[in-house]
Design a protein around this nucleic acid. Sequence first.
DNA 1: GCCAAAATAT
DNA 2: GATATTTTGG
Length: 266
Amino acid sequence: MREEDSNWFAKWEEELPSPEELIPLSQSLITPDLAIAFDLHRNNNSNSGQPLPQTTPPQPNSSAEIAGDSTGDEPARTLKRPRLVWTPQLHKRFVDAVAHLGIKNAVPKTIMQLMSVDGLTRENVASHLQKYRLYLKRMKSGGGGGGSGDSDHLFASSPVPPHFLHPTSRQSSDLFIPSFVPISTQQQHIAAPPSQFLHRQISAVNFISRTKATDQAMFLARQQSELQQPVFKPSSLHLHSQVANYTQDLKSGAKTVLTLFPIRDD
DNA sequence: GCCAAAATAT
DNA sequence: GATATTTTGG
């Protein structure tokens, strides 16, 4: 089983998006600023609707920008937060987070935090989680051969950790620590030298990976490096520190597109 | 007009 | 936070 674990992840790794595939998430957008500007209406019932877009939601600073068509037209009257598109990359991140948290701790809020994607809301995650669970359910019953298959394209794009399907003997308390051994892969280049000194340290780190803090740190580190390489287009942005970035990248016609970049949690 | 995806309500 | 329902996009 253990072999399986490392195996599935290894496989997963192989299937990781190539640089070309790792394009920024994009979605049609109506700038939040605009939304905020006109906000109002959304809480037509009582006020249980917690999302009062009045205050700047999850956009730090350099986040969302107005689309090119931010002209003064007044679509605002009916503004809503732009629909989030779960790209395979984003979903992968999601699955990653869920996997690392373990089913137990995989709740919207936690997942959201771990994912560390700017602009992503708890609601977004909750909704997606709902679908994901449904998908898992289907997987269990329908099995790989059942009706499952090409439907759920998105979910199929990212492998499902075995533990999800097999509630084996794994204790609910343990957090899943797959090959979150960024060390082994990341340090390769420095592993060469005879510096047993260094080697030691690495081993040590490798050994520790138990605390949540460490785990999460590793997680983030990993995710970051992963999503850092490709993403950026030539001229577009300055990928300074991995600060949240919303960038209108492309657009066709009058439609603007928003791209989300994963960031480190802070 | 249908279906899936995401948002929103309960 | 989970689930049901509605809205929206394709």
